[in-house]
Amino acid sequence: MQISTTLSTETVDDARLAEILANPGFGIHFTDHMFTVEWTPEKGWHDARITPYGPLSLDPATAVLHYAQETFEGMKAYRREDGSVWTFRPEANAARMARSSQRLAFPELPVDDFVAAVDALVQVDERWVPDGEGEKSLYIRPFMIATETFLGVRPSQHVTFMVIASPAGAYFKGGIKPVSLWLTEEYTRAGRGGMGAAKTGGNYASSLVAQQEATANGCDQVVFLDVAEGKYVEELGGMNMYFVFKDGSIVTPATGTILEGITRSSIIQIADGLGHQVTERRFSIDEWRDGITSGDIVEIFACGTAAVITPVGALKWDGGEVGAPASQELTMRIRQALVDVQYGRAEDSFGWMHHVV
Rank of each mutant, 00 (worst) to 15 (best):
V233M: 12
V115I: 11
M97A: 09
A120H: 02
G304Q: 04
G132L: 06
A314E: 13
Y78M: 02
N93W: 01
E42T: 11
L330D: 04
L236P: 06
H66I: 02
I297T: 11
A48N: 03
P110H: 10
R192E: 13
S249R: 09
Q221T: 01
A254F: 08
E299W: 04
W45K: 04
R281T: 09
I292E: 01
S180G: 15
F114V: 00
A92E: 12
D32T: 09
G132D: 04
F301R: 02
L208Y: 11
S156N: 09
A63P: 03
R99A: 12
A165V: 06
H46P: 12
F26N: 06
G174D: 07
I267W: 03
M97E: 08
D272N: 15
I262S: 00
L259H: 00
P142S: 11
E260P: 05
A18Y: 04
G230T: 08
G54D: 09
A116S: 07
Q221R: 04
A68P: 08
D290Y: 13
S57P: 01
T36H: 13
D290H: 14
Q269D: 15
T160I: 07
E260M: 13
P107V: 06
L65F: 11
A61F: 07
E234T: 15
F161T: 00
G351N: 09
P110T: 11
V12H: 03
T200A: 13
P253G: 07
E186T: 13
V233D: 06
S349A: 15
P60E: 02
H33M: 10
R264T: 07
M162D: 00
A314D: 11
E280R: 09
W39D: 01
Y53T: 00
